[in-house]
């Protein structure tokens, strides 16, 4: 398994947010984490990369237990994270944003260069010197993904990549994610949008109120409209 999450519990202060979350991602797989607003998708991702201080449980990445490691070490193992709010460095240019994400080449992961990323996201190549703050939402979303890919991750946590984007940009996003998959990057993508998730994912988990309440292939999910309707707003 590429990534295994077991018994993950997270707290914000006195509030218990995640309850015994567990899921797995196989080598080269695209797995969707589906759920409504506030279900705990982002917190799950933030907990995996160590951005939530109060968490317990076991997170195994490529056979190594990374649960107790600081964020930057987890990321340097090749576990990339693309946050929901994009969090572009608005004062930095596109190229400088990419530079922040740059990490050495990794033997078991595709190697990304600026040029390669500019082919994947042609828009970015046309605005190398533009400050992140003066880009559209879609361009910023591309930049966050490209920035994380500069770290040559073997697995990427993509937090709601389609949120707030126009249908045309969403299409580009689907293409980009499929390209990443083809290159051999494993992906966990959190989504509210089932249609989007279906276009890219092999399997799906549904999270509701901090608990995983379904896990299976997309076909299995389609066979259970009751679950789909109960936990996902369509």
């Amino acid at each position: 398994m590429k990534l295994t999450v077991q018994d993950l519990n997270s707290h914000y202060g006195p509030a218990h947010i995640l309850f015994d979350i567990g899921f797995e991602v196989g080598e080269g797989e695209v797995v969707a984490l589906l759920g409504r607003n506030g279900a705990g998708k982002s917190t799950t991702f933030r907990s995996i990369v160590g951005l939530v201080a109060q968490r317990t449980g076991r997170i195994t990445f490529e056979g190594k237990d990374v649960s107790a490691r600081p964020t930057h070490e987890i990321v340097r193992e090749g576990l990339g994270y693309v946050p929901e709010e994009r969090r572009i460095f608005t004062d930095l240019t596109v190229e400088e944003n990419l530079e922040v994400g740059r990490q050495p080449k990794r033997p078991n992961a595709p190697y990304w260069t600026r040029e390669k990323l500019f082919t994947l996201f042609p828009n970015l190549g046309e605005m190398k010197g533009r400050p992140g703050g003066r880009m559209s939402g879609g361009e910023q979303q591309m930049l966050t993904i490209a920035r994380t890919l500069m770290g040559n991750p073997s697995l990427v946590l993509l937090d709601e990549p389609s949120e707030g984007l126009s249908p045309k940009i969403v299409e580009q996003m689907v293409d980009a994610i499929l390209t990443m998959k083809k290159e051999g990057v494993s992906i966990v993508v959190s989504e509210q949008n089932l249609h989007f998730a279906r276009l890219i994912s092999d399997r799906a988990y549904i999270i509701e109120r901090g608990r995983i309440c379904f896990g299976g292939t997309m076909a299995e999910l389609d066979a259970r409209p009751d679950i789909r309707d109960a936990h996902l707003s369509l």
Binding site: R76, M150, G151
Partner: peptide, 24 residues
Amino acid sequence: TRWGVLVRAATQDRDMVAALGVNQ
């Protein structure tokens, strides 16, 4: 310099810099 870029990035968003693998 790369150091300068990292510093400017951290000025804006420290956690994000860590989430990109930089040892804060």
